[in-house]
């Protein structure tokens, strides 16, 4: 029981490791830049809209599924990737906007 509890705490500690890195993905000229990103579990990606019109960001991937709605120029949306695996990221407004994030242990 006690061991289990400790393990849980350790896991949580890992997930919120202070070394979690932050990355930025731009949405510019109706494309993600870059279109491929490799990160570690717990890292945060900030999607920033650099276009003078709205974008969205969502994923229906098993590893991480999210939909942040749409947001205007200059705004960003932060997503924490908490499981290892592949995440296909898209913009619902512009279906040709696609990118891939690989989350490793």
């Amino acid at each position: 029981m006690k061991i289990k509890y400790c393990l849980g705490v350790a896991l949580i500690a890992c997930a919120f490791d202070a070394s979690a890195a932050e990355y930025e993905i731009a949405q510019r000229n109706k494309a993600f830049a870059p279109v491929y990103l490799k990160i570690k579990v717990g890292d945060v990606v900030n999607f920033v809209n650099d276009d003078p019109f709205a974008h969205n960001v969502y994923s229906l991937s098993e590893t991480k599924s999210f939909d942040v709605g749409s947001y205007p120029k200059g705004q960003g949306k932060q997503i924490t990737f908490d499981k290892p695996g592949q995440v296909f990221v898209e913009c619902a407004i512009h279906p040709f906007m696609k990118m891939k994030i690989e989350v490793t242990q």
Partner: peptide
Amino acid sequence: CVACHQGFNFTDEGFH
């Protein structure tokens, strides 16, 4: 209008 009607064909090929 150019927030959505963009480019030569006046469309962003997007959904609104």
